[in-house]
Every structure is written in structure tokens, then in C-alpha cells.
Design a protein around this nucleic acid. Structure first.
Lengths: 235, 235
DNA sequence: TTGACTGTCCTTGTATACAAGTATACGTGT
DNA sequence: ACACGTATACTTGTATACAAGGACAGTCAA
């Protein structure tokens, strides 16, 4: 049984509201502190967050919507297994949206402020080194910066909602197989292309960048079949 | 006070569950039977659907997530005004995703079954004539068919979740200003380009097709300023 | 007339009691 | 040993009671 520390309100803490519960559990799932298939109990969560079941259920409803949790009536509530179909969809959505964003950025250019933010994100990634959480945060910041740059900051929220399934794989793989240096080099290349207003190169580079995750997914499916639900072949 | 009929369970009907309540209210909002700014009462909805507040609240949580409802604690629950920012985002997302889908379909071709489905959707649109609901359904079916065709059927669910804000404008405008014939002609042209495996033409045609909605939005904002929240200029 | 106060009724947020169904350990009979 | 029924302790779904705060009409005083 797994007993590593999860996000816990310290004992004697004030009760949490539904929004906090949602974000805490979501973060625990995405960061693989709650494993696919693991059981959740509404009562237990109520105790953990020092509330009744009502706010807990509100959080659960949203997590079900996100596809991160499954509720079997009268049986239990479980962390969803990683769905290959959902990963495939998330990859397609992210790819399509980010390519459109980068193309727009390259065609219209970006402001000096936005440029600074992108550079900060790259620098942050270099500092992060091999710490998976820091690196992932900085990676998100890089990609998000371009969405902000073209005045469509809230586009990223769509990517983010899709990215959840996806991210579980990322956190599973980051420490081991991901070539951190390569990712940073690609980020630099993308930025250069955007600054040079070369939309085609920017698009091509981003496409290569995003396809890396596809490869690591395939590798992980072989090493961790218990965490992943192959709902593509069976259809 | 508006008193047109909304989706009502007949008197003496069996209680509705949370999923039904969610879909019913969502449909009422998207189809503009519940107007932006209109007040909702949890108790009233409970009576309407013959349940307690609990399932009603579950539906409301999901509608808040969709951006279709706003809850002001201790004050009330209201149908969201149409957000220009959300419309802009939805348009970008739909455009990016559908262009990627169409491009993929044009490059790899589609199956005979998928081709039949697309043709059925076009025929249905012709029969629908100027009935806004039927026409909108058939329109969705056309666009969805391509997502199905490339084996990414669940992509459409992402578009659909974004499309809600969007659709309110569509239902506001459809009977009046939309050139039905033009839309159908464009659908045919898109299909032809896909069948001819001409990705560039398919993309160009779809781009023109989607940009029509942009124009009608601008027109509607002038005629119905009370329904629309201009949250772009103010930022 | 105007302003502040207050009681009442409303709202949503939370806790709890109950309903209905499932998993499981345990005893019993064969 | 093994199959089967049963009690029991869970699970989530739903209804209801209560808490906390806002909206508003009416009252009273200046």
C-alpha cells in the first residue's frame, strides 16, 4: 500500500471549500500521487478536508467531467485509468491549438513583454534541471506564453483541461526518459522562428517538439500496462 | 415576463436525475429559452424536476464549469450573459480543430460509410429549410461527421463544449440573417475538396465557411447589447 | 421628505439523516 | 471441503434541516 505524503491540510486546519478540494485532488491525480484505479471514499475525503460529503461531492462531479474520476453507483469512486483514447484526443487538440497559436504569433509578431516572458520560461526550465515538477511548470509557462502573446490567453485553459490525462504520462516519464536538453533546444528554435516571423519553420519545429510525447507514451504503455486502459484496439 | 414553454416534465412525471436536469437546462440556455441574465432558483428547479436541491446543485456545478451560469453566493443564480471573450475563444478553438480535422480527412481520405453520413447531413439540412433547430442539428452533424471519419469522434465533444456560448448567438441569428443556401453550398464544396483529396482547397473553403459566424456576431452585438457582455474592450 | 434601522423572506452553503444497492465475512448444512 | 444463505458494514444517491448572509419593505425618528 502506498503511503507517500499527499497534499494534506494540517491537523486542526480550517475546513476546505469545494474549489480547494477539487484542485487538491486534481493535482494529486495529475501528479500521480493518486494512482489510476485507486479507490476514493467520499466519507474519507470529508474527514481529510474537514467537511461533510457535500463539498466533496461537488469536487467529484467536476473531476468526473474532467475524466479523471469514475463513479460506480453504490460501488465506489475510483481514479480513472489513463485512457489511450483520451490521450490521443488530448494530443490532437493540443497540437491543433498550439500550431494555430504559433502560426498566428509568427505571422503577426509578439510584443516585447511577451518575448521577455517566453525567455523567462526557457531560463526557468534550465534552472529546473531534472526536477519533474519544476520542469513541467516551466514547460507549461513557455507554451502558455504564446497564447497570451496573441491575446488569446484563455485558449490555454482549453489545452489545460485536455492536458490532464496527458500530464499523468508526462509525470510518469519525465524523470526517466525525457531528453530535457532536447526539449529546451526545441523551445529555443521555436522562439527564434517566431521572432524571425517564419511561420512555416515555427510550425514544423513545434510539430517535432510535440511528437516527442507520442513516443514516450508508446514506451510507457509497455512498461506500465496496469495504469493504462487500451480503449482504442478494443473498438 | 417571458412565458414561452420550456422543456418541462409533464405533471405527475417521475423525478429527474442530475444528468437529465443538466442537459435540459443546458439546452434551454443554448436555445435561448432561458435568457442571459435570467434568474434561476434552486428550489424552483427542484419543484420543476420533482427532486430536492441536491441533484439540481449537481447540474448547476457543471453548468458553471461550462460558463453558462453564474452563482453569486447568498444572492442568486443567473444565466451568464454572452461573453465576447468566450465567443472569440470558442471561434478560435473550433476553427483550429476543424481545420486540422478537415486537413487530415483530405490527406488520408474518408471511408464510404463516412461519406454517406456526410451526404445524409447535407440532405437533412436541405429538408430542414429555415427551421433553426433542425438546421442547427444538421449543421452539427455535418461537422461532426468529419471528426468521426478520421477516427477522432470524441474531438467533437471538445468543440461542442466550446460551442455553447457561440450557439446562443447562432440561435439568435439563424432565423433572420443567416444565408442558408450559402451555408449548404459551402458544405458541398468542402465535401468535394475532401473527396478530391485537395487539402488546401478544403482548408480554404472551411475557413470562409467559419468566418460567416464572425460577421453575424458583430451585427448581433449592435442589435442586442443587453444580452452580450463586452469583456474585451474593457481589458 | 429623507434617512437609518429592523424584521422578514429570500438566497446559496453545509451538515446530516435516510434510502437503496453492493461486497464480504461468516456460519450452516450438505 | 464446499456450496449457499445471511447478516453486516460498507458504497453512492437523495432528501431535508440548519446556518449565514443579502434584498427589501415597513417603521420610526429627525
Amino acid at each position: 500500500m502506498v503511503h507517500e505524503k499527499r497534499s494534506l491540510p494540517r491537523p486542526g486546519e480550517t475546513p476546505a471549500n469545494a474549489a480547494t478540494i477539487y484542485q487538491t485532488i486534481r493535482s494529486d491525480i495529475v501528479r500521480m500521487r493518486l494512482r489510476p484505479g485507486e479507490r476514493l471514499s467520499e466519507n474519507e475525503l470529508g474527514l481529510r478536508f474537514r467537511t461533510s460529503r457535500t463539498p466533496v461531492r461537488e469536487a467529484i462531479v467536476r473531476l468526473v467531467d474532467d475524466g479523471l474520476i469514475e463513479v460506480w453507483p453504490q460501488r465506489g469512486t475510483f481514479v480513472s485509468r489513463i485512457s489511450l483514447k483520451a490521450v490521443k484526443r488530448a494530443r490532437f487538440v493540443r497540437s491543433a491549438l498550439e500550431l494555430a497559436v504559433i502560426r498566428e504569433a509568427a505571422e503577426h509578431g509578439i510584443s516585447p513583454a511577451a518575448l521577455r516572458e517566453v525567455k523567462r520560461a526557457i531560463a526557468e526550465q534550465e534552472r529546473a534541471g531534472s526536477d519533474p515538477h519544476l520542469f513541467a511548470d516551466a514547460d507549461d509557462r513557455f507554451h502558455r506564453a504564446f497564447a497570451d502573446a496573441i491575446g488569446y490567453g484563455d485558449i490555454w485553459s482549453v489545452v489545460e483541461s485536455q492536458k490532464a490525462q496527458f500530464d499523468r504520462i508526462r509525470f510518469l516519464s519525465l524523470p526517466a526518459v525525457t531528453p530535457v536538453d532536447l526539449l529546451i533546444r526545441q523551445h529555443r528554435a521555436i522562439l527564434e522562428a517566431v521572432v524571425a516571423r517564419d511561420a512555416d519553420t515555427a510550425e514544423k519545429t513545434l510539430r517535432a517538439h510535440l511528437s516527442i510525447v507520442v513516443e514516450t507514451t508508446a514506451a510507457l504503455m509497455r512498461t506500465n500496462p496496469d495504469l493504462i486502459n487500451d480503449d482504442i484496439s478494443e473498438n
